[in-house]
């Protein structure tokens, strides 16, 4: 196994460790987003970054072409957003909910394998920007999905009067609803810029399937954002939209990379 993949495997194990640590702490009833959880996330992120750097050197370009590479890049973006949004939204359990998703994405990537790329003549910075922004937007949608799961869990506990360990760790339900909206708006903004760049690149939509799918994802989240903005849907339905909605970008990645 190449060094880069060894690093990715190590990162995956660390994220799994973060899940186990948090679950054990939750079970004992003493979970807090302590230093251990944060350090594990930092360490996992550092190894992810190292993997992307080495993988980029291996393929001689930004590693964002194969499904495996795209999944790792999105997973990396999710963890980056987790650090950026964690403090401002105070989603104290975001780490616990983020680590499983990132671990699954790494698992799929490692199983799918990292094939070599065809050589690229010249690197166009705008193309790389277009792809990177789209993938970071997908990461924001993934975080909206995670926050949606948190909302649904908290909502269920409040409705059923299940006041237990996890209940005390989750943020106010109103804050979660707002966080979903902000993450959807953030993703939509990044995806809009990415698609704006595709216009500058004169990428014909008919020949580049991923742009078509990106427009599909954009349309889906634009509708979600509009419904949220006009308060046409309840926060619970919004949370479900954020959770189920993420399936489309996830599937689109699969289709695009296998087309």
């Amino acid at each position: 196994m190449p060094t880069s993949q060894q690093l990715l495997l190590a990162a995956t194990l660390i994220f799994v460790g973060a899940i186990v640590q948090a679950l054990l702490a939750l079970k004992s009833g003493a979970w807090k987003q302590g230093r251990a959880q944060f350090l594990l996330m930092v360490l996992g992120f550092a190894l992810q970054t190292d993997f992307i750097y080495l993988r980029g050197k291996e393929v001689g370009q930004c590693p964002m072409k194969s499904l495996a590479d795209i999944l790792v890049f999105i997973a990396w973006s999710i963890v980056m957003l987790y650090f950026l949004l964690g403090s401002s939204f105070r989603l104290s359990l975001l780490g616990l909910f983020t680590a499983p998703l990132v671990s699954i994405m790494h698992g799929i990537a490692l199983t799918a394998g990292f094939a070599p790329y065809p050589p690229k003549g010249q690197i166009n910075a705008l193309v790389e920007l277009h792809i990177a922004l789209a993938l970071i937007a997908y990461a924001a949608f993934a975080l909206a999905c995670i926050t949606g799961v948190m909302y649904l869990v908290q909502e269920r506990m409040l409705k059923r009067h299940q006041i237990g360990g996890l209940f005390y760790q989750l943020p106010p339900i109103q804050g979660l609803a707002q966080a979903i909206q902000r993450l959807v708006w953030l993703g939509l903004l990044l995806l809009s810029i990415s698609l704006g760049v595709s216009f500058a690149l004169h990428l014909p939509m008919t020949k580049t399937g991923h742009v078509v799918f990106a427009w599909g994802v954009w349309a889906l989240y634009a509708v979600c954002a509009f419904l949220m903005w006009r308060h046409f849907t309840s926060p619970r339905k919004t949370a479900w939209l954020a959770v189920i909605g993420f399936i489309l970008p996830f599937i689109s990645l699969w289709i695009v990379t296998h087309a």
Binding site: Q154, I163, Y168, P172, I173, Q174, G175
Partner: peptide
């Protein structure tokens, strides 16, 4: 955890709103 009805009310309110 809350040990009185008053503190349960506060805990619940905190988990619904700021």
């Amino acid at each position: 955890g809350s040990t009185s009805v008053g503190s349960v009310a506060v805990d619940l309110a905190e988990k619904v709103h700021d």
